[in-house]
Computed example of a mutant assay.
Amino acid sequence: MTDTFTKPATEPFVTRRAAASGASPVMEAPFDPASMADMPLTRLLHYWFEEVWGRGNLNAVSNIMRRNTLISGSVSALAEPESDYSEVVAALRNLLGPIKVTFTHVMETDEWVSVRLVAATSNPRDGEPFEITGQVMARVEDGRIAEMHSNMDYFRMFEMLGQLPPEALAICLTGERLG
């Protein structure tokens, strides 16, 4: 038996497994932003979150996304291909305090990038900080996002903003109605 599973838990599992097999890891967790140097699609997605979501630069939406980008996800799906995705961004940013997105996991191929992220923000009413997690997959074509699929923990976000009662998901799982 090798020592692959006996190393400290703080070392990423995939790195331990890759080291034991002699292979190089495709993904590391937690993600090290310094590793983006060789990951152009990850850099594009990182820029997307910093510029559009973090800084609120809505002009960057048209520079980063294609005009007919296919979008899927709870809130993202509100933006039809013909509509202005920046309206969705503006609506969410108006509900939240400053947003800082950190990638915890990243995978990238020739045209696809997938990230797990943590978005740190706050409730603007009382300044109470909170975090939500999410995953985004994007296909990049000619340096722009051509397809984006996202899932974010909007239940938690709306709970933290006071728009849903605490433990709303648990209540819904019991079959009860929110009221």
Rank of each mutant, 00 (worst) to 15 (best):
P25S: 15
G56L: 00
A77W: 08
R55E: 08
E147T: 03
E11Q: 12
F130H: 11
A119L: 14
M27Q: 08
F103K: 10
I64W: 00
G54Q: 01
N94G: 15
V52W: 05
L96F: 14
S86I: 01
L78Y: 12
L161C: 12
E87C: 00
R17S: 00
L173Y: 11
N151Q: 08
P165Q: 13
K7I: 01
R156V: 08
R16I: 02
S150L: 08
A138Y: 02
E131R: 15
T102W: 00
N123I: 07
Y154M: 12
L78G: 11
V136Q: 12
L70Q: 05
P8F: 04
M27T: 07
M36C: 11
P166D: 07
N151K: 00
V89Q: 07
F158H: 04
P166Q: 04
T121S: 15
L169Q: 09
A23R: 15
W53E: 08
D32Y: 01
P12L: 13
S122D: 15
V118W: 14
C172K: 13
V101N: 10
E176G: 00
E82R: 11
A90Q: 13
A146S: 05
T109W: 05
L164F: 13
M148V: 10
R156P: 00
E131S: 15
F49K: 10
D126I: 07
R139H: 02
D32Q: 05
P8W: 02
V14T: 12
V88P: 04
V115H: 01
T10D: 12
A9R: 00
M157H: 06
I99K: 13
D38P: 03
M157V: 07
E159I: 07
A18N: 04
H105S: 08
E87S: 01
P98V: 13
L96W: 14
L58C: 06
P81Q: 07
V101Q: 08
P25F: 10
T42S: 06
S35I: 09
M107Y: 08
P12F: 12
R55P: 00
S76R: 05
I145N: 03
R139K: 06
I145E: 02
F5V: 13
W112L: 08
D110N: 06
P40G: 03
D110E: 12
P98A: 14
L169E: 09
T102Y: 06
G175R: 04
M160S: 14
N63S: 09
V61A: 04
L173A: 12
A120H: 13
G56A: 01
R116Y: 11
V136A: 12
A119Q: 14
R116V: 14
L44E: 09
P12K: 09
T174S: 09
I64C: 02
